[in-house]
Structures are given as structure tokens and as C-alpha cells.
Design a protein around this nucleic acid. Structure first.
Lengths: 361, 361
DNA sequence: CCGGTATCTTGGAACGATCCAGAGCGCCGT
DNA sequence: ACGGCGCTCTGGATCGTTCCAAGATACCGG
């Protein structure tokens, strides 16, 4: 490389940066352009609009890129295009003693789908104690992310409406239960249908006294799932009265509910339990265990979420499985439309769950 | 503001952008500087080196920042400082039928710790089929991330040495088992000590025939954990022969191992099982279930990882708990040193696990 | 042979922050 | 009173990319 010796002692206004450093400085557009004998813009076009180049030019540029191992600097690109190609996802503290680990599956699917669309997922937390700066606002204002994926609403959190009113671009996993007029895109799983599926399954197995162990009335999701039980039971001509328990989403409640529902005259006892979540179902299993009953033989139990715990516990729990991979794909599709400012005619998308049948039914 | 009117009809080389747009364009350094009556650089200093400013100037600038709701544009900052303030974390497909969901806990802790240090976590996948471009290389070359957190090694994957040889900055969760001379920082949990802890616990409970259900010989981690059993058993003067089984990290192996170890003469039967993972332990529990035995009453079982499944299954599984929150903190500490180019005298850090005692012991 | 058009390529400007060198200014000792 | 010093603050240059408008080239019919 022409070393270009400068006379010592003289102040050199332009240090004459030789564009072909050994390997220390990463290659830039200019480096590639020099190598391929074209201008910067042509290299840029080769990457962003290859159809504009003549085939032989394109080939030459691609070879130069390959040879130098060039990849465009994201910071510079982000600065120019005013977009970061990142989507923010808030991670909540993992709740202990809860079987709800569906986030794992969803997060992975989301990362995969976003990568296909040319994006990446950035994680952040609620921000702890100092509520001074809302992390959503902060990340958006500093252009750290282009949009958010919000999963709060899937527990019925009315967080989304605030974001919507602020003009924050986001896609929700979970329906805007409390605000049917919400304009933001969302994807959700039909919990009602999932429970109905479970009812059918249990009826097919010969059950007629099927109990519901679900959440308290405040929860939209809880009511949705429960309505699947009520409706489908009635469609089968089966009773629901005295077969329902409500409480928190805890093991302890599940256990208590099962004991209460079983502490009645033999004729009134349920022969199967439908649960609003795997956590509750695990509680029910514990109660059966305590009573010397065996799920799958003496009684049937069906959970909801198809968590890892459901898969590995003994006996393995039949559970409603959410199509999280599909959810992620749909979320990313909406994200793409949102960020491209495409009109979004139908902002909602409901997917059907399936039933993972295992030993407890 | 000096409007500097240009003669009409003349081509105006500088469109003279008025710096005070209504609210559509986000504020920049220049906007804030104008508002506070100082220069750009002074605003920059107010954020990055406040001690350089006179208190009253600082206050004025801070008020302007507050008033305009300014936060610095990350892309611009990243471009100038040649760092993204992001760390990459690869997420692997969630393995079904495995109790190993410790990633959830670790990821959250990691996100929290990195935020405290002024960083964020970016997720990416292995890249699927097309191995053409290694995602690590790609992300680093494009300056999308400053460094990586690698968790592969905690399953004994020799992936790390390749990264190290490439000069990729990263911190590993997991020891460089196969390369003690590795120079990269790492954090690990003392699995051997965790198992020794379990042995002590079981001995205290009166057990003397304590079996080991672990992984095949290839696994460094498996051997490490197993050595905790062997060593501590011998220290207690207890036998280990004919009390060990090896296989895959699956439910099925756990179940098979338990059956095999129990299918011997009563005097030779173990009264407790130590497992290399919760997955294996769940398999053991299933086997006991199948034999009409009850863990915690007839036999003791101890797992490893303190997964969610361990917490919610019935009976609840005693398990070795990795201090993932601490691991994350140490990882981030190393990251900070690494990125600040501080010398790292001792690149390794081993943390002690604890035992979560539950019903099965 | 020439002007016009479609195709391909080019250099300059801009994105918004930080680095750098130097300017203004108040304070001190002599 | 003055030079020197330290503390603040300023303006210009820069990071690497994409946008923009205009230049160069090739192809075509008249």
C-alpha cells in the first residue's frame, strides 16, 4: 500500500486516509466502491435496488463486497433512513410458581419472524421503580426502536389504549377487550374455541359432569374462556350449575377449587376438570394427588397453554395449545404494514388453538 | 430568529430549515441549544459530561431538554461513537418436552442488568438453514451489536473457542471446559457443589443409598455434576457402585433409569435419586408413579435447574437452583470491562447454587 | 449524422450526534 | 497593568449511509 510519507514537522491538513487499510478498519461503501471501480451510490444501489444496475456492474460490485467482507453500517443507515429496524418487546419478571412459560415459545417465534422481515427484537424492562420516564416513550423518542410488540393485553391489561392514544406504533398480542374501537393491529387466540374443543374432547371420552376452574370475573380472558365452557356444555345439553369455581391464577386456587368441587355427594361430583390455565390445572392435579385420585383414570383434567410443565409432569396434562408460531407471523405481518404505512383494513386477527391430548384425559 | 430572506427566483443553495417546527419533527441537539441559548456542544456536554458545565448553564440546558422532551438520537450517537450499546443474545428454539426453561429467568435478569449499565439486549437466531453468513459475524460487522452473550457453552458446546479465535467480543455463561486457556470472560455455576449440597441434604434426611441419574460421558457439565455426587458420597463413606445410570437429557431416559435402578433386590435399591437435570428428574417421577411409589414418602428425588415444572408438579420437586440473577450481573460486569477495554485479570467467575427443598425429599 | 430518450452512474448534501482545537473571559500573582 | 492560567463555551469537521438532481453513456429513429 502506498505509504505516502509526509514531511515530518509539517502540519498536515489532510492526513490523506488511505482507503485500503489492512483489516483494522471495517470496510465502508467507499472502500467497496474503490475496489469495484464504481461510485458509492452504485454500491448502495447494488444492495438496495439491484434492478437499477447493469448485470455486469452488479456482479462486479457483489464480488467486491464478498471479497472485502463488507456489510453496511447499521448506525449510518438508521440515521439516514430514520428507522432502526428494531422492534421493542417488554419482558416481565418471570413469575415463580406459575406454569405460564409460553413466552419462551412466543419470543423465539417472534425473533424468527422478525428476522425474515429484516428486523430484530430488542428487549427492555418496565423500568423498575423510577417511573419518571416511560420506557416506551424513551425508546421511541430516541429512535431506538421503530415499533413495539405488546403482550400485556393478553392478560387483559388496558395498557394498550394508552399507547394507542400516544400515537405509538405497536402490534398487540391480545385483543383490546375493553376498547372494541381501538385502531391498533392485534392478534389473538380464540380461547373460547379452545375450551369448546376441550369440552368436545371430554364428551367424546364419555364425560358429562365437566367442571370449570377459572379466574375471577374481572378478567376478560377468563370470561372468554369460561364462555366456551358454558356455551358448549349447553349445546351438548349438559349441566353447568354447581360445577364452576373462580379464583386467582395460582396453584393454590386450583387445588382448593378441586377439593371444593369434589367435596359433594358422589352423584354431584364432576368427572372432569377444565381449567383456565395450566397453573390452575397443576393445582387441580395436586388436589387429586392428595385425595389419592389419579388423573386420567379416575378423573380427567384439561389445562390451557400447553406449558412445559404440562408436557413433563406425571401424568402428562392434556392442554389447549396456542399457535404461538402463527401468532408471531401475523404480528410481524401487521408490523410490516404498520411501518410501511400501508392501510390496515382489518386490524384484528383471531387464530384457532388446538388440543394437545395427553394422559390426563 | 434572523430570517435571512433570500431574493425570490434565485436558486437557494441552502433551504434554510427553520429549526422550530411545531412538533412533527423530534427535537435535536440544535433545537435544544437554541432553546437554551447555548451551542450544540454544550448541550451534548450537559448529557455526557455535566461536570464541565457551570451549574446555572447546566440547569438551563436541563430545563430546555425537559421542556422539549428531548432524547438523543441513538443512530447518530452510535454512528459517531462507533458503538451500538447493544449486546446480542442468541435464542434457540424452545425444546419441547424438556423442563429446561431457565432461559426465561436468565434473560430477564440479563435485560435488567444490561439496562443498568446503559445497554440493551438484542435477540437473534442461529440463522436457520442458510449458513452462508454467520449471524455473529454479520451483526458484528454491521456494528449492530457491540458484543455477545453466549450461553451455548453451558451445554458444553465448544462454540466459544471459535468466537474467541475470531476476536469477537463476548462473555460466556458457561466455562470453556475444553479449553482452559481461553481468554474470554465467563461466568458459571458450580454444578458440582450443587450436587454435593443435594447429597448432604439427602444424607441429613437419613438416606444412604443415593443413586445418580445423569448424562452420557461426553458432557462436561454432566461429568462435573456427577463428580459432585461421587466425591461427596465417598466423603460420607457411602457407596456409589451400581447406583449410577447415564443417558440422554430426556424424560424417557429418566424413567428408564429409575426402573432399571429399582429392578434389583430390595437391599440394593436406592432410596433417593439425584438427577443431572429437572427433565431427567421428571422422568424419574413418572417411573415412580408407574410403580405406585410416591416421591417424598417412599423415595426421595432431587432435580437440577429449579425449573418451573419442578415448582408446580405434584409432588413438587426438590431441585438445585442456579443463581441466574447473579450470573447476569457478573456477565454484565464483564461486558462493561470488555467494552471499556479494561484489563480483565481473572476471566472466570464461579457462583454457588442453592437448594430449593420441596416435597420430593 | 444528429437530437432525443431511456438507462446507468455520479458527486454533493443531509441525517444528528460527538471529537477536536481554539476562542472568550474571569482570576491570580507579580 | 499585564501575561498566564484554568474554566466554559463555541464552530467546524466527521462518522457511513441514503436522497437528490444532474451528468455520462448507449440506443434509436429520422
Amino acid at each position: 500500500m502506498s505509504t505516502n510519507p509526509v514531511p515530518p514537522g509539517q502540519p498536515q491538513p489532510q492526513p490523506q486516509p488511505q482507503p485500503e487499510q489492512p483489516a483494522s478498519a471495517p470496510p465502508t461503501l467507499a472502500t467497496v466502491a474503490l475496489e469495484a471501480g464504481v461510485s458509492r451510490q452504485t454500491v448502495s444501489n447494488a444492495l438496495n435496488a439491484p434492478e437499477l444496475l447493469r448485470p455486469d456492474t452488479l456482479h462486479r460490485v457483489q464480488q467486491a463486497i464478498e471479497k472485502l467482507g463488507y456489510s453496511p453500517n447499521r448506525a449510518a443507515r438508521n440515521l439516514r433512513t430514520r428507522s432502526s429496524h428494531l422492534v421493542g418487546l417488554r419482558v416481565d419478571p418471570a413469575v415463580e410458581d406459575s406454569a405460564n412459560a409460553l413466552m419462551d415459545r412466543f419470543v423465539h417465534s417472534l425473533v424468527e419472524s422478525t428476522e425474515v422481515a429484516g428486523y430484530h427484537v430488542l428487549l427492555f424492562t418496565a423500568g423498575g421503580d423510577h417511573e419518571a420516564t416511560c420506557p416506551y416513550d424513551e425508546l421511541l423518542r430516541s429512535a431506538a426502536v421503530d415499533a413495539f410488540v405488546v403482550t400485556d393485553t393478553f392478560r387483559g391489561n388496558p395498557h394498550a389504549s394508552w399507547l394507542g392514544s400516544q400515537g405509538v406504533p405497536f402490534v398487540a398480542f391480545g385483543r383490546p377487550w375493553d376498547d372494541p374501537a381501538a385502531r391498533h393491529p392485534w392478534v389473538d387466540v380464540d380461547g373460547r374455541a379452545g375450551v369448546a374443543l376441550s369440552v368436545d374432547h371430554l364428551v367424546e371420552r364419555g364425560h358429562s359432569r365437566i367442571a370449570w376452574a377459572g379466574w375471577q370475573k374481572g378478567s376478560f380472558i377468563g370470561e372468554d374462556r369460561r364462555s366456551g365452557w358454558v356455551t358448549r356444555m349447553h349445546e351438548h345439553g349438559l349441566p353447568t350449575s354447581r360445577l364452576s369455581a373462580r379464583g386467582d391464577d395460582t396453584l393454590e386456587f386450583g387445588s382448593r377449587a378441586a377439593h371444593a368441587l369434589l367435596d359433594v355427594s358422589p352423584a354431584d361430583r364432576p368427572t372432569a376438570f377444565l381449567c383456565a390455565s395450566d397453573t390452575v390445572a397443576m393445582g387441580v392435579l395436586r388436589a387429586l394427588d392428595e385425595r389419592g385420585l389419579r388423573a386420567g383414570r379416575d378423573l380427567a383434567v384439561v389445562g390451557f397453554d400447553d406449558s412445559i410443565a404440562a408436557q413433563v409432569c406425571s401424568p402428562a396434562l392434556t392442554s389447549v395449545r396456542q399457535p404461538l408460531e402463527q401468532v408471531a407471523v401475523e404480528v410481524v405481518r401487521f408490523l410490516g404494514d404498520l411501518l410501511a404505512h400501508h392501510p390496515i383494513p382489518e386490524p384484528g386477527c383471531i387464530l384457532a388453538p388446538t388440543l394437545s391430548v395427553r394422559s390426563t384425559s
